[in-house]
Design a protein around this nucleic acid. Structure first.
Lengths: 136, 136
DNA sequence: AATAATTGTGCAACTTTGTTGCAAGTGATA
DNA sequence: TATCACTTGCAACAAAGTTGCACAATTATT
């Protein structure tokens, strides 16, 4: 799994087994994950605290982004080249009320919104809840 | 403050001082509030647990709705006639990174999105973060 | 107006979620 | 392979949220 090392190095991070495992979990699961999800998947190998810190580091370095949810934060891989300096996301997130999975719809962009005078938008986050194709 | 009683009765709720105070806090503060905000405002008068339960009840009855946030849930008044049966919201929420306030932009509707086949949307939640007119 | 039935509240105890400081361990570099 | 900086685990803590139960308050009934 040299690709994991590449990704970590590309973001100026040391390669450790915890970081490799967290990253690889994101890659294989594909959907947005909460801290609890990762703890469930890797908790026997790593301390809770380490997972928290790994998520925080990945966020800062632009490897993952936050996904808003009505029952707790989740995180998902950044597909484009986000960096320490800035994240850029304008895709839609879809949460299925049946299976509970939240996924990035990378190809769907959030439509432009005309805000009233004085509002300076920087960041957009659209969550659509409903039933996904698998469960429909 | 008979309007408070009216609102509570209209949603089939007994009028208690806690409910009146929570409702009145939402009305006067206008912006979205977290449980912590309410605890800060009313915590000396009511138990933490009671405030949790009041929020839950208000949510169920359609008096308030959830506002997604990247650092914890907030709640805001439903402006239209939401009920036990269903909530309907399609307005935009704006969170200011300076003052930290989150507000409903009642007049701004979330633009329609063309989802791929198979997705059945039910619920939309758009949070825009940036700088608000007061802080700009 | 008094009482009964129903619903809400406070308290205590607990679970879950997230944070911080520090000592020991590990990875990258020369 | 020795060094230095960064990472991890542990322990302790803080914050956020939940549950059961006895008592209190509100509404409905007479």
């Amino acid at each position: 799994m040299d690709q994991l090392r590449e990704t970590l190095k590309g973001h100026h991070l040391r390669t450790t087994t915890c970081r490799e495992d967290v990253l690889s979990t994101f890659i294989t699961k594909k959907n947005a994950l909460s801290h609890g999800d990762l703890e469930g998947a890797l908790g026997e190998n790593y301390d809770r605290v380490t997972i928290y810190r790994t998520l925080k580091t990945f966020l800062e370095k632009g490897i993952i982004h936050k996904v808003l949810d009505d029952e707790g934060l989740r995180y998902a891989l950044c597909s484009h080249n986000c960096s320490e300096e800035k994240h850029h996301h304008d895709h839609i997130h879809f949460k299925c009320s049946e299976c509970g999975e939240t996924n990035c719809l990378e190809n769907l962009h959030i439509p432009a919104v005309q805000l009233p005078n004085g509002y300076q938008p920087e960041n957009f986050n659209l969550l659509i809840q409903g039933v996904c194709p698998k469960c429909g």
